[in-house]
Each structure stands twice: as structure tokens, then as C-alpha cells.
Design a binder for these strands. Sequence first.
DNA 1: GTCCGGATTACCT
DNA 2: GGTAATCCGGACT
Length: 192
Amino acid sequence: MNLGELLESDVVAAARHLLGWELRFGPLRARIVEAEAYRTPDDPACHAHRGQTPRNATMFGPAGKAYVYFTYGNHWMLNVVAHEPGNAAAVLIRALEPLEGLDEMRGRRLKATRDEDLLSGPGKLCQAFGITGELDGVDLFDGQGLHLVEGAAVTDVLTGSRIGITSGKEWPWRFVDAKAIRWASRPIKDLA
DNA sequence: GTCCGGATTACCT
DNA sequence: GGTAATCCGGACT
């Protein structure tokens, strides 16, 4: 099954297979090294668990769109919408390996002292790419603007519990490229 | 209208 | 490893 089919049917498998894909935005290019799955109706950590609101409406739409939201008063987060319209689910992009456009990323991430600090977190990568709520709902597979391009498949994947949530920790829906842990957002102590 | 908490980050020890 | 910062969305009175 290709990624498009996985996105429509199985957000957990889709999160796993999104590793290795490239995120592009103008001159910026970076490789997905960490992602997490969220879904309804059985996942209490999913924003859409308590139903549709204006904020999470994009997650209830068709797969393949960007769901971008604001949290903690400072940070934007980028997700890839999954499952069929009405069944809310999404893959949170948590970390990227920078490939091109490093200078532009550094220009937006003035607090980053090392290249490992550029994209190693969901809020950081949105800041480095200049992703804000204006991009909520854009098509990530149309080859223009902010979009995804298939890269070399990742074969060595670490799995663990999701970060920063209070319920739903028992599901190992966090995925990290084992050969790129240098770029991941957190240590991998519970990953196997 | 008010209150609480958050899919985080940055900075300090 | 711990915690302050920061402010919007959602739930509730």
C-alpha cells in the first residue's frame, strides 16, 4: 500500500511510513525523522476526541491536508490529516533533518545555537519553515507551496509512547528513524 | 465572563 | 532534570 492509501485507512501505519519523506517549502528542504499518530474515536489524546470545533475542523476533512494549530501561547504545530472525512485523525510531524536552506532556517531560529536545534521539535520546525495558521488546510501532495515529496524508505524504525500527553501513553504511536536520532526531538529512552 | 490546561520551548542549576 | 513563559481554545458558571 502506498502512503496515500495508508493515510486514508490507517493513521498509525501512515505515521510510520511518513519517515523519510521530504517536507519542502520554497527553497527549504528537510527529511521527516520523527512522527506521531493521533485518531478518533478511541484515542483520548487526539484534539478531536471531544468532537469538532472551529480549531480542529481541518482534521475532520479529507486526508492529505495540513492541520496547523497554535498552542502554549507561542507555538504552531504541523500535522498531516488522515482517514476519511468525518473520521478525524492526523500525523504530528515532530522533527526533521535539515537538507537545504539552512541559512534561512537559522535566520528564523535565532535561539538555535546548533543545527540540531533547528528542527528538533514540532514548534521549532514550524518556526524554521515559517509555518503558521495561514497554511491550515493546504494540500500537502499537490507539489506546490508547502508540500511533501517521497524520499528513500526508512527501514530501521524505533517505536515508543507519544510525547507531552497525559492519556493514551500506552499506545506506541511515536516513530523515529533509528539512523537519524541525532535530529529527533527527545531522547529515545523508552523507544525500542 | 471566567477559568483551566495545553501534541512546547528556552533557560537555569 | 526542573520550571517559567505565554495566550488561545474549550468547558463551565
